[in-house]
Computed example of a mutant assay.
Amino acid sequence: MIINFDFTFNAIAILMGILAWSVLGYLAYRIYQKQMRKPKIWKILIVLYIGLFSFSFEWSMFETMIKIPILPLGVWLLYIVVKGKGERWQTYRSFAWLGFLANFIFLLSTLVAVPIHQAIYHENELSTYISTVDNASINPIHSSAENLTLNNEKLLEQLHEMKQETIYSDQWYEETYMNAESTSRKERFPYQLIGTSPKWGSGLQTIIYLEEDGKGILLSTSKKQLYFRSEISLIEEGE
């Protein structure tokens, strides 16, 4: 079986999954039609499910973990169980192997879905992670945060203008925690940006932080962090 994208709702993955299941259903129907002795549908489903089990090789591609099936463990198990009943094995053998073949169908759907997803949802563009800002606002998460508000119009204007920059983790840590007294310490990202939505269908889950000067945005996903910088501040004096 394929380990899918680490996304809540991934339109491309869902569409490819539906296509893969449709192909599997069609092949199972063709096999069923050719059978002289028609097996029960629920038994076919069980055989297909068991046939899916395999010894697989894991491989990471574009930050997506996939499994390449090598040994048909499910097929072997079914053969051991019914090998004494030759006629029954002949009836279900094709479905067992189709179950193993399904691993490659799902693998192919994933291999196709990954580059399509990368082409549609550019992971290094801010607009992929922040698409709608109508209900966006900032939430102070540190005592050094000032009483400021988000300028939604400026944020919307800067979504395609902000450039990705390098994250200087060590330098930022030293500036925040090593070179300042605890009483006067200021958090570099004292605001959390909330109320935004990623590009539809991307399924990206992101925690977004806003820099103290209102010009930097730090995106934190389950896999990596991205830093974008604006030429103008996105925050203004609060009411």
Rank of each mutant, 00 (worst) to 15 (best):
L210C: 04
E237C: 00
S222G: 11
T149S: 12
K163W: 00
A11P: 14
I2C: 10
F228H: 05
D134T: 05
K223I: 10
L219E: 05
G203Y: 02
G216I: 00
Y173A: 10
F62W: 08
H160M: 07
Q33P: 10
E63V: 03
W200T: 12
G214P: 03
K34P: 06
S144A: 09
L150H: 04
R93N: 14
F62I: 01
W76V: 09
I232V: 12
I141G: 06
G201K: 06
Y49Q: 08
E161A: 03
E161W: 00
I208L: 05
H160Y: 10
I120C: 11
G216M: 02
F62R: 04
E175D: 14
E174H: 08
L52N: 12
E174D: 12
L45A: 15
R229T: 06
N151Y: 00
K223W: 09
R30L: 15
N152R: 13
E157M: 05
T8A: 12
P69S: 07
I207C: 05
G86E: 11
V75R: 01
M1A: 13
A11N: 07
S197L: 09
F104H: 14
H122V: 08
T64W: 00
K154W: 05
E237N: 10
S182V: 13
G84N: 09
I116S: 09
Q158S: 12
F57W: 14
R185F: 00
Q90P: 00
F104E: 11
R37G: 03
H142F: 09
I70F: 01
N179C: 07
I66E: 02
N135Q: 11
Y173W: 11
F55S: 14
F189Q: 02
L98E: 14
W42F: 07
N135D: 12
I70R: 02
K43M: 11
S54H: 04
E187T: 08
I41M: 15
W89A: 03
I68F: 04
F5Y: 10
P115N: 08
R185N: 05
T91V: 10
M178L: 08
T206P: 14
Y177H: 09
G25F: 03
L126S: 06
I66W: 00
I141W: 01
P115H: 03
K34R: 15
K154F: 01
K40C: 05
F57Y: 14
W89G: 06
E181T: 08
R37H: 09
Q90D: 10
R229L: 11
L101K: 14
L48T: 02
A96T: 07
I70Q: 03
R37D: 09
K223P: 07
Y49W: 08
S143K: 13
G51V: 04
E58I: 00
F95T: 06
L48C: 04
V112Y: 03
N151D: 15
I80N: 11
V112S: 12
F95C: 04
F62A: 11
M162R: 07
I68S: 05
F55C: 11
L77S: 02
V75M: 02
Y191Q: 06
I167F: 12
D134E: 14
F106D: 06
D213F: 00
L77D: 01
Y32D: 12
L150P: 03
L15I: 08
L107Y: 05
N139V: 00
V133G: 02
Q164F: 00
V81R: 15
T91L: 10
E211Q: 15
I18L: 15
A113Y: 01
L73H: 06
P39S: 02
W76F: 07
R188W: 08
E153V: 04
R229V: 05
